[in-house]
Design a protein around this nucleic acid. Sequence first.
DNA 1: AATGAATGAGGTTTCATTCAT
DNA 2: TATGAATGAAACCTCATTCAT
Lengths: 190, 190, 190, 190
Amino acid sequence: MGKPARRRLQPEARKLEIIEAAERLLAAQGSRVRVEDVVREAGVAKGTFFLYFPTWDDLLETVRQRLVTEFDRTHPLPTEAEGPIDWPGLVESQAAAFIDWTLSRQGFGDAVFHSDFAERRPLADNGILRLSAVIRAGQEVQAFGPVDPDPTARLLFAVIHESADAVAGGADREAIIAALNSLLRRTLAP
Amino acid sequence: MGKPARRRLQPEARKLEIIEAAERLLAAQGSRVRVEDVVREAGVAKGTFFLYFPTWDDLLETVRQRLVTEFDRTHPLPTEAEGPIDWPGLVESQAAAFIDWTLSRQGFGDAVFHSDFAERRPLADNGILRLSAVIRAGQEVQAFGPVDPDPTARLLFAVIHESADAVAGGADREAIIAALNSLLRRTLAP
Amino acid sequence: MGKPARRRLQPEARKLEIIEAAERLLAAQGSRVRVEDVVREAGVAKGTFFLYFPTWDDLLETVRQRLVTEFDRTHPLPTEAEGPIDWPGLVESQAAAFIDWTLSRQGFGDAVFHSDFAERRPLADNGILRLSAVIRAGQEVQAFGPVDPDPTARLLFAVIHESADAVAGGADREAIIAALNSLLRRTLAP
Amino acid sequence: MGKPARRRLQPEARKLEIIEAAERLLAAQGSRVRVEDVVREAGVAKGTFFLYFPTWDDLLETVRQRLVTEFDRTHPLPTEAEGPIDWPGLVESQAAAFIDWTLSRQGFGDAVFHSDFAERRPLADNGILRLSAVIRAGQEVQAFGPVDPDPTARLLFAVIHESADAVAGGADREAIIAALNSLLRRTLAP
DNA sequence: AATGAATGAGGTTTCATTCAT
DNA sequence: TATGAATGAAACCTCATTCAT
């Protein structure tokens, strides 16, 4: 009857299509995106969405997790095996990478990190854990001062987030990065 | 069990009652609060709400403005006339005051500072302007180093916010404050 | 306290102020006008409005009556004492006058003659009575044919109304008037 | 007394049910009808209504279109192939048919032709186009005089409408029809 | 596994009218 | 007579979620 043939896919493939459709829309429209929009973009029926995501928040959760994981994968921490590590430089370069990566995802992050969703489902942020680990490792080789790693990581991660928001919001990228680097370096200095 | 008599108040008094009812509920329930809840808490009819606030966002705007103003009023910056100023101590004490004050308002702040509302109606944050002014003043007397005041103020304010959130979320207050103070002091040190 | 002195007027004067305010607004905005608008325009309090008009429809009723009366007053029918009457010409000139008068009141008429109000409170239209009387008088002197005066008056009045609406809606005035005059003259011809 | 099972229909069938429910209510209650009433009458949920009609006015638009189409379908104009046409008789019979048809729909027409809705969404009235075409065709065979077809059609259609309203409102059907026919015949006479 | 029609609680906003002052 | 703060019943519309097919 002219209706496109029902595409029967591997569950994982179908789920991925939905996720990617959601990511495209979230990047473009932030938290204005609705289930309706996602299924249209994915070319899937409404019911199919709820087959894979019991609630809308579950989708956001998945998307958030993927964001975190993708950053980790594309920005791996160096290992000592590769040579001596410039610890302050590492922190700064990871921070800059985070900012640029956030920027490339536009208002995307807001929808999953600052929205009402984030309030409903807080996340023990992976970025904080990474940063905390880096601080500890740097401290072991005397590259960083005696700061308390966990609270400091949390606070520094907030600074990095804010830097990304600032740049995304139109602030002067160079000025923000300079202030950020100065703050990071001074805070962690031995 | 009859309905309570209609109470006629001065507009300002009635508006204040609505605002205070909203503040109580926002403190307890965050952004789940609705017009319906506010009017019940305030003991007024729904129409009365819209008499004073054309839209729900207008109420949030008012509440946010009151929060900012109230902090400024209850935590004035010292003037040189009162004697020499301990600049690093000033920053730290204002930060600690902000944290405790936020804490006393519970999840309140989230509803107006981190919610979808905040995304819809961003605010040139007064706290940042204050901090920026303090940094400049401290720099003039060599109490602070040559950081770029505006971006730095923005980043530091984010740190203070995050500290407040952390403490509100159950993190160890002393540890957070210690990390925060260290960060502030090092970042601004000459 | 800077509040303008309460003007205590003769009831009729106050009522007239309200009516005239309503007429100004109805002329400009048609049935979009609200009680709120009228009292603002009239410079009176809301309660005052309902002191003079128990309901909104009562105001519309009054306004409608005034419209009818004003037309009658400003466009009196000639009496035989003034000389012989050109009966077809009389009908045509009254019709043209009605159109121009409607036009000068803009969408005003719609709000009281074609709106939901008119449906709620139908009016035995005075214009029809006038026309009916003219037809009878003309018939007595053989100026008009043997049409049934009352139904014919009703139908012709509808034609005149429609002509006015057409011209108000942008139709070519001359063409409409020509068609109208032809219709009137032929319908009433001996 | 449980809630009736959810009935899943073809979209067109469900849409039709809603339209017909609306038509029943509009016929009985005119423009007092609300979305709430229609969904109750149709036995569907509120959301279902808005699934098919984005706004209330869209429903009225549909209903109006159906009215016009239905009349055209049940009262086709004769073609010359069927034999010579009695032009004046045709106009009169169509007019009478329109009146009776309007009558059978009760105050229905008012809600879509004379209400505030009609003011918001004017319709290039199909009835006028039909009448205009008939006038032109009659003129070609000298059955009608040299009137200006378009304005005249508009005015005559208003007369027919008014006749229908009059009869619906309780006026003497025969008297109205007689006056109408006289008016039509005289206006269009060669 | 997939569909998409159907749901209905929930939300904001309007405005004629009332009534304490 | 006059005020204007207060009312609350509607009204429209949204959208995550359900479920018959």
